[in-house]
Design a protein around this nucleic acid. Structure first.
Lengths: 336, 336
DNA sequence: TTGAAAGCGTTACCAT
DNA sequence: ATGGTAACGCTTTCAA
């Protein structure tokens, strides 16, 4: 194993100079820095993680807690984990997974043992037990998602309410007077926070704009295509010609299939907006206007906040909402 | 922060006694041990991770590398990640995620910095670049899956060939003379190793038993239900009445739907065996005999091997195949 | 711009 | 059965 001593010797300097040359925390002359960097490369030196943690006060590791409930949508979840890991690596941090059923125990453990510099919380529930823990541990914690009691927490998320407003506005502007919201699974409106935030955004703005609203959940399983089709057909029979879809890809596909069968042209006879989808909507059989939920955005912001909490002292807790963006591809039909 | 010194003082012993009481590496009298444990509990002591890494030679962290290719099936992948994390925690290890596109860089980094005690490799490709790295780093590495060149590696996996044999034998024993293998996506037969191992097992045994075999892939997308249905209907038209399904849940559902529409009763008119499925087949609309791929089995074995490599010195590299198990629920129909 | 040396909190060896 | 203490390899203060 190569140590800092060997690097120092090879470069003909002291170990403190090596340390400073690598951390950049003190100016080092050009020529010595180059000599040190060469030695590092030649010897294949990598600082010992344990020594670094002990001597410095940084572990360069973030914990990522994920409860992994049964109703978790795996592809979406993976996208968030991946985005977090990538963002963290870019800032020089590794991700330690905390998947315990009692993620609480893990949070306390990694905080007490100084194993991580910060904790990132995924898959946040309305009454999330991790909120209380975040308040007691002194390890900076950032939530990707928003629990009901946000007191003293740092949270990051898409502004789902604004996304709801945006979707309704577009449809109302186009002249629609009735809208169907094809929503998430029933359970997710209880176990998660974001579905109802979008729902409220849609409901409130629908009232403001004076448009009728039908809200339909996907039943127990998001992949239960039959239920989705039935809901879509009922909406069509009802005369609804405007859809906001807040659901997984299968639900989008099912709706578009029903519309196609009924001979209804999207962007012509009916309007469809995909709200807060984290998958690639451009691969849908028909182009659909989208207000995307971009995991990279949330996760990069979360990592950035965590890093800032470590480097600056004056970072206040608070909710950071990401403004929604409307991507139009012509799936909203103007109605006379 | 509570240190071992404070615990020692509170318990009225030396720090070495505290250390030994907690590690169990030296006998400690009943009464002192209890006093120490009390002090630990009262003070909320947790050993400092950095100090532990530096002084001991163990970090109590395993790295888990996962390339996360585009064709990765998210739910299956998550099941393996979760199973690994749980198994590791049970043995006192945390999981550090390595999701870099170049997982290679990550492996070298964590190995060189002594950040982890062992590396677990997920989602193994036939020509996996991580195999070469595993041979060069001195950090013990265990593959969950099997690359083409296994020289000097430690690998764990279900015995897919044996699973193929088992499935064919059951159908041949029941009197079937033609079998359709409803397989994975086309790309997975190139990018992964296990689909072709099952395929070979099925092919070889089919030849031995003198039964005809039709092999059908799922096309590009496993969720392309239409293609699956077409394949199933072609097989039925062909006269095939025996199916081995090696695919995700949607494919199972599609096949069963087609059989139902044709009025063919599973276990009566047709035989269906699900091979190497990692999801819960008992929730399928019709009971299906299953040769399950249990992530917990593979992952626990992998963690166990990693731990053994750390604790014992005499663990040899090699392939560890888990024998398949046949779970019969009567979906194989005897044919006169 | 550079060096020397004092910790950091454990583990594990050497005593007793 | 227990205690004292030397590492472990780095960061950072203090000096020059």
């Amino acid at each position: 194993m190569t140590t800092i001593h060997e690097v120092a010797e090879a470069a003909g300097v002291s170990i403190s100079t090596v340390s400073y040359a690598l951390s950049g925390k003190r100016p080092v002359s050009e020529k010595t820095r180059v000599r040190i960097e060469d030695a590092v490369r030649v010897l294949g030196y990598e600082p010992d993680a344990g020594a670094r943690m002990l001597a410095g006060r940084r572990t360069h590791i973030f914990a990522l807690t994920e409860p992994l409930r049964a109703d978790t949508h795996a592809p979406t979840h993976m996208a968030f984990v991946l985005a977090t890991a990538v963002a963290a690596r870019q800032r020089g941090y590794d991700i330690l997974l905390l998947t315990d059923e009692q993620a609480s125990e893990g949070m306390n453990r990694v905080a007490a043992s100084n194993l991580v510099d910060a904790i990132l919380v995924l898959d946040v529930a309305p009454d999330d037990a991790r909120a209380a823990i975040a308040r007691t541990v002194r390890t900076p914690t950032v939530f990707i998602g928003i629990p009901d009691d946000q007191e003293g927490l740092t949270c990051v998320d898409l502004d789902f309410e604004a996304a709801g407003h945006l979707a309704v506005d577009r449809l109302a502007d186009a002249g629609h007077t009735r809208i169907t919201l094809l929503g998430q699974t029933e359970v997710s409106y209880r176990k998660s926070n974001f579905p109802r935030r979008l729902l409220h955004g849609v409901q409130d703005r629908a009232v403001e704009r004076g448009v009728g609203l039908d809200w339909v959940t996907t039943g127990t399983s998001a992949t239960d295509t039959a239920a989705v089709r039935a809901a879509a057909e009922a909406a069509i029979a009802r005369g609804d010609r405007a859809f906001i879809v807040h659901a997984v890809d299968d639900v989008h596909a099912a709706l578009l299939a029903v519309l196609d069968e009924r001979g209804l042209l999207v962007g012509e006879d009916v309007s469809v907006i995909s709200a807060a989808a984290s998958f690639d909507t451009t691969t849908l059989p028909v182009p659909v206007d989208t207000i995307p939920l971009v995991p990279q955005q949330s996760c990069e912001l979360a990592v950035d906040l965590a890093v800032r909490r470590l480097e600056e002292a004056d970072v206040r807790p608070g909710i950071h909402l990401i403004p929604p963006e409307y991507r139009s591809v012509g799936s909203v039909a103007p109605r006379g």
